[in-house]
Amino acid sequence: MKEKEEKEPVIIAFICNWCASAAADLAGTSRMQYASNIRPIRVMCSGSIDTSYMLKPFLDGADGVFIGGCHPGDCHYIDGNYKARRKVEEVKEILRSLGLDDERIRLRWISASEGKKFADEVNAFAEELKSKERGRAMP
């Protein structure tokens, strides 16, 4: 399958509306530089991300999927992030079993004041993905 070469890794980021969004906003307003290859999608809760949403970006050629949610115990909706953790574990196991790189899906807990952590995590992720093969869309 020939497609236009993507030079930079493409990261789809699902960011929860509460802690993770606040951190992302804080990173933005504090003018911290973070990788522009991240394409954020704001969801209400990390627990509202279905497993098929975590897989679809890979099949469409994304390099990585980043999920930002509140620390366990801090979830605005009580326990959404605990459920999200199980779903990410399921998707990781599926990727591992199919010989696909499970490091390409990354779950990170980020609290509202951790703007720097958000920027650092995204940058580290982008950096790691650069050294890997570019994602390919399934035919």
Binding site: T51, S52, M54, L55, K56, L59, E90, V91, I94, M138
Partner: peptide
């Protein structure tokens, strides 16, 4: 989404 059907069904 031929592949998404299989992998998505697998995930579900």
């Amino acid at each position: 989404d031929k592949f998404l059907f299989h992998l998505g069904r697998l995930a579900h």
